[in-house]
């Protein structure tokens, strides 16, 4: 078995009534890399992540995560994986510490209190521990959600627009932390973002989705080269315009 493959997807397809959100997608994500899922609004990025977490059931295709079949070994996989999204929140009327305690227990983390404090330090928000989530700024909230996503020391981390709604300074800080974690723990990241400069900075490989299909993939440099463009941003705009044409 290929032990360096963290995600193996073949022919993944998901239809919603009128739209085919993901259409025969193949993916091969390697251990330790940062993998970017890119594409326009509605291209199928979030749906792909949801399918990879088993939150949504695919119409067709095989998904293996960490070498295990998702359909039959889902809970085992989820214990070693985590997820954060700008559009998902922890309960707003609990404090950060309370919320993280609940998730630490859900993931069976040993010595939860110590782990939580380490993570809050790492993301530089220890002062939010006793504040309710509903009262935090979006920068603090995003970082609290990242603490939740790191609570089980995941081998694979899905980040759906982790830097959306962050100011540039905090976004840079979040990126730095993610790089650090990746270096220290070898965690694999699957990343979506609409900020192409960020993607070029962070990602080892990317796939551009268009209407649920892979329109281009490879390292950022390869993708730029194939398209004959100087930046991913230009590639993005090209692909978007082809899509319309």
């Amino acid at each position: 078995m290929d032990t360096d493959q963290v995600i193996g997807v073949k022919g993944l397809t998901k239809r919603f009534a009128a739209v085919t959100a993901v259409d025969g997608l193949d993916l091969d994500v390697r251990r330790g890399e940062v993998f970017g899922l890119l594409g326009q609004n509605g291209a199928g990025k979030t749906t792909t992540i949801q399918l990879l977490l088993g939150l949504t059931v695919p119409d067709a295709g095989d998904v293996a995560v960490l070498g295990l079949p998702l359909a039959s070994r889902r809970r085992e996989i989820l214990a070693r994986v985590n997820f954060s999204s700008a559009y998902v929140a922890m309960p707003s009327n609990l404090t950060v510490l309370e919320n993280l305690t609940v998730f630490a227990l859900l993931y069976g983390v040993r010595r939860p209190r110590k782990r939580i404090m380490e993570l809050l330090e790492l993301l530089e928000i220890p002062d939010t521990a006793r504040r309710v989530c509903g009262g935090l700024s979006s920068g603090q909230l995003t970082r609290a959600n990242l603490c939740k996503a790191l609570i089980n020391d995941p081998e694979l981390l899905f980040l759906d627009e982790p830097t959306a709604s962050l100011d540039p300074a905090i976004a840079a800080k979040v990126r730095r932390t993610l790089k650090q974690i990746r270096q220290e723990r070898g965690v694999t990241l699957v990343y979506t973002s609409h900020n192409m400069r960020e993607v070029e900075e962070m990602c080892d490989r990317v796939v551009f989705l268009r209407q649920g299909r892979a329109a281009a993939q490879g390292s950022p440099a390869q993708v730029r080269q194939q398209a004959g463009r100087a930046s991913l941003e230009e590639v993005f705009i090209d692909l978007a315009e082809q899509g319309r044409g």
Partner: peptide
């Protein structure tokens, strides 16, 4: 609370 995905993404 938009927390349901966090729960169902946990084991």
């Amino acid at each position: 609370e938009r927390n349901i995905v966090n729960l169902f993404a946990a084991p």
